[in-house]
């Protein structure tokens, strides 16, 4: 599904964010990418999302070589990868429904489809009763659920979650991870970028550990073992 082959990313003049990273993620896997701040895990996420391009190496999503992606293809790629961030990135003047609908609107979806799909994904994330609330009227966990609903609305093959629990307390963080696991259970590949030890250890799923831009371990049922 996702293949990184000898990928390096060097920021000018000489900052090596990633150095010869290689791994393969199979369809339907739940993989945590862990590492300390500045280890290169967010760069890895940005490369997958085509926000950055690698200096060397290749990145494949299925048969698609993302490292050589054309500018016009980027939106198509991004509709196949649902992205969730630590800061939610919700529009404050739009309700939960409108925030999720916005993703379909900009993709040119029909209004009837928007009316049908948005309540469905909001139901999946448990916000059916709060779909007309604005982000300021929702808790942090609920806002992250809206962001996840938005990521799901294009029915992506992959969910890329970059520090999704970074702003949440422990209980809410567990709820968000449970939600991601449920999404994974129905076949969606989940790539979780985090440095939250407890979450990684509790899941007992595949863990890729990055340190100073290099993969230092890739364990099938791994734990967080960084200092």
């Amino acid at each position: 599904m996702i293949t990184f082959k000898n990928v390096s990313k060097i920021y000018k003049p000489e900052t090596k964010a990633l150095d010869g990273v290689s791994f393969h993620i199979r369809p339907g896997e739940f993989v945590s990418v862990v590492g300390t701040s500045g280890s290169g895990k967010t760069t890895l996420a940005k490369l997958l999302f085509a926000e950055e391009s690698p200096t060397r190496g290749s990145i494949h999503l299925g048969d698609w070589d993302i490292s050589k992606i054309r500018r016009a293809e980027i939106p198509v790629l991004r509709r196949q990868i649902g992205v969730v961030f630590q800061d939610y990135k919700l529009l404050p003047k739009k309700t939960a429904f409108e925030n999720v609908a916005f993703a379909l609107e900009v993709a040119g979806a029909a209004t009837s489809r928007i009316r049908e799909v948005v309540p469905q994904v909001l139901k999946i994330v448990g916000l059916s009763d709060k779909m007309h609330r604005y982000p300021r009227q929702l808790s942090g966990g609920e806002q992250q659920r809206v962001a996840i609903a938005r990521a799901l609305v294009h029915r992506p093959k992959i969910i890329l979650a970059d520090e999704p629990t970074g702003n949440l307390d422990a209980i809410t963080s567990r709820e968000i991870i449970e939600l991601l696991k449920r999404i994974n259970d129905v076949g969606t590949t989940v790539l979780l970028v985090t440095h939250d030890r407890e979450i990684v250890n509790a899941m007992r799923r595949r863990v890729i550990t990055i340190q100073q831009g290099k993969i230092v371990s890739d364990v099938e049922h791994g734990k967080y073992h960084l200092g």
Binding site: A72, P75, L77, R78, K89, L90, L91, F102, A103, V106
Partner: peptide, 16 residues
């Protein structure tokens, strides 16, 4: 700027 960032995030075409 926030809308533009979200548009990019959810795969809006450049012309949009």
């Amino acid at each position: 700027r926030d809308e533009i960032a979200v548009m990019k995030l959810v795969g809006a075409q450049d012309w949009f």
